[in-house]
């Protein structure tokens, strides 16, 4: 018995060596190209951030000769990071917090069908997902409300986002309805139920929505350019414009600034990522 197995094994092995799996080789090559497309710009960004300006202009794509941290110092100073960072943190945390909490409170009764036309309200959110951004009416609205060029006005822009609502509604549907009833019998109020029972149970969805929304606000460049003119209210993205000159841009400092800009969101993502992975995959297998 053992000899037969041995010879069989040898046979298969020799067959394996003789044949090259071209499909596999091809697929790895394609993956390699994709990886280069994704990683390439990131690598260029890091590489540029460590170059001096003359070095950059001599050969923009060449490898940096040393680690030049001066760009980060310049970026921090020129892009007014200390002020703008505080602004960005305020906008991002306040808007994301209000957005997530209100979304959960709105999503729960929709998911449960506790009000009559909940289904249709959700449909409106889905439709809104496909509509183009309504810049002009939105601008008029903010202007007429007297909120143009104010922190509140700017935060207000980020309090609605259909995708988060859709994710959270669908996730709440996986929370058993008996928990609502059990809590009702325990004497739990609606607000307390949402905060102490529902929120902890939908952590993955909340984490996903938080990260998506926070990154969106943090990286927003168009809206601050439109709605904020006061230098003291700019978010950090707006500060990047100083590196763009009429006669030439300070690319290494800009690259350094972009890297600094990325750090907080990277940290947030790392903190929440274990929930996010669960949030995106869960529900797929639950009946």
């Amino acid at each position: 018995m053992s000899t037969i197995t041995e010879s069989n094994l040898k046979h298969t092995r020799s067959k394996g060596i003789a044949r090259i799996d071209w499909v596999k080789v091809g697929s790895y090559l394609i993956l390699l190209v994709f990886a280069a497309v994704y990683v390439g710009p990131l690598f260029m960004l890091v590489n540029t951030a460590f170059k001096t300006l003359p070095e950059f202009f001599r050969a923009p794509t060449a490898l940096a000769t040393g680690l030049n941290f001066q760009n980060f110092v310049d970026a921090w100073r020129l892009a007014k990071f200390p002020t703008y960072l505080v602004n960005s943190v305020i906008y991002t945390t306040v808007a994301t917090f209000i957005y997530v909490v209100t979304t959960v409170f709105v999503a729960f009764p929709i998911a449960r069908g506790y009000y009559k036309f909940g289904k249709y309200i959700l449909l409106l959110y889905v439709i809104a997902l496909f509509l183009p951004p309504a810049l002009i009416p939105q601008f008029q609205l903010i202007l007429n409300l007297g909120l143009y060029n104010t922190r509140i006005g700017y935060i207000l822009l980020f309090l609605i986002n259909p995708i988060g609502m859709i994710i959270i509604v669908n996730y709440i549907k996986t929370v058993p309805r008996e928990l609502d009833e059990s809590a009702a019998m325990d004497g739990c109020s609606y607000f307390r139920f949402i905060l102490t029972i529902v929120l902890p149970l939908i952590k993955p969805a909340v984490a996903t929505v938080t990260v998506l929304h926070a990154i969106g606000i943090w990286n927003e460049l168009i809206l601050p350019t439109i709605y904020l003119t006061n230098d003291a209210l700019y978010p950090v993205t707006r500060g990047l414009i100083v590196f763009q000159g009429v006669y030439g841009s300070n690319w290494p400092a800009l690259a350094a600034a972009v890297l600094i800009l990325m750090i907080p969101m990277l940290i947030l993502f790392m903190f929440l990522q274990r929930y996010i992975i669960a949030g995106l995959t869960e529900g797929a297998v639950k009946g």
Binding site: E181, S182, A184, M185, G187
Partner: peptide
């Protein structure tokens, strides 16, 4: 429900 002085055991335990 909370003021009815009752307690319930659910099928799914909840």
């Amino acid at each position: 429900p909370k003021d009815r002085d009752i307690a319930m055991v659910f099928q799914s335990y909840a």
